[in-house]
């Protein structure tokens, strides 16, 4: 251990790092490795068959498609909300700012049943769509609505601090040089915000892919149509198909790790971009 670190007068390094590594191994790493070791008992064709059945492929399409659409909506409206909260003054602003984090704090099951009640055919919002023949609850659109809700704070909270730290001199210079407001926004402000915006987008997307609680109530969960991949894992588990459930879990885990890598690269880019200005 001692060779690993630089000298410090402070005590407790061995104890603190030792406990941290032991805890992480027992709680996180060993259980996670169980999924990979279990799956390695399958041959490659068995694994491939388990994760590419038509029902599974349909669940990927829904999970990734709805997550992507929700993250796009969150990127656009998250940027708008961050802009309005940083730049403008209006009554109730502090309350709005605090409530943006609601999807982080509200248990997903509560969000799920509330959104289902609202968007059902007789719900407060659903009743306006029913007459024009649009069903939201119990369809893939419902999945998109739930994923938009749970991903809402990510873009706001990543863009907001960058926007707050933006030097007014940049915009003044642009204006002095004859740029109009839209040009200043698209050529000066947006490039500075872009890494943070993309980080927020990636965080919202990553969260949406794994989301379960808020989706299962509103989705209707029809195989091939409105069944998300995490639900399919549970279905397989309930049918005692441990190998199938674990194989799907491994696919989800690999995608999670990839997203984590992408997010780390984006955050590094974001820090470099903002510190360069």
């Amino acid at each position: 251990m001692r060779a690993l670190r630089q000298h410090s007068v402070l005590p407790g390094f061995n104890l603190a790092l030792g406990f941290t590594l032991l805890y992480l191994s027992l709680i996180v790493l060993i259980p996670l490795s169980a999924a990979f070791i279990r799956t390695s008992a399958l041959t490659w064709p068995e694994f491939w068959d388990a994760v590419t059945t038509p029902r599974v492929l349909a669940s990927y399409r829904l999970t990734f498609g709805a997550s992507f659409a929700a993250a796009v909506v969150n990127a656009i409206f998250g940027l708008l909300v961050a802009w309005v909260l940083v730049r403008y003054r209006f009554p109730g602003k502090k309350l709005v700012d605090a409530l943006v984090d609601l999807p982080f704090a509200l248990p997903t099951a509560v969000a799920g049943i509330a959104l289902t009640a609202l968007y059902a055919g007789n719900g407060w919002i659903g009743q306006f769509f029913e007459p024009i023949g649009v069903k939201i609850a119990f369809t893939p659109i419902g999945v998109f609505i739930a994923l938009t809700f749970i991903g809402l704070p990510f873009v706001v909270r990543t863009v907001q601090p960058v926007l707050e730290d933006l030097e007014p001199e940049l915009e003044e210079a642009a204006a002095t040089l004859g740029a109009n407001r839209l040009q200043t926004f698209s050529r000066v402000i947006l490039p500075v915000l872009l890494p943070a915006l993309m980080t927020g987008f990636a965080l919202a997307f990553a969260r949406a892919i794994g989301e379960y609680g808020s989706v299962i109530f509103i989705a209707g969960n029809m195989p091939m149509i409105s069944e998300i991949t995490p639900l399919l894992i549970i279905t397989k588990l309930e049918q005692y198909d441990y190998a199938g459930a674990t194989a799907l879990a491994v696919v989800m885990l690999v995608i999670s790790f990839l997203m984590l890598l992408i997010i780390n690269v984006l955050q590094w880019w974001s820090r470099r971009r903002t510190s360069a200005i």
């Binding site: 996180v28 259980p31 996670l32 169980a34 999924a35 279990r38 997903t108 990553a206 892919i209 794994g210 989301e211 379960y212 609680g213 995490p230 639900l231 894992i233 549970i234 588990l237 441990y242 459930a245 674990t246 879990a249 989800m252 885990l253 999670s256 790790f257 997203m259 984590l260 997010i263």
Partner: peptide, 16 residues
């Protein structure tokens, strides 16, 4: 890491 793992997978690994 636990932030990026789907809740369903988090439960499943303990079952395993």
């Amino acid at each position: 890491l636990p932030f990026s793992v789907s809740p369903v997978v988090s439960g499943l690994i303990y079952v395993l």
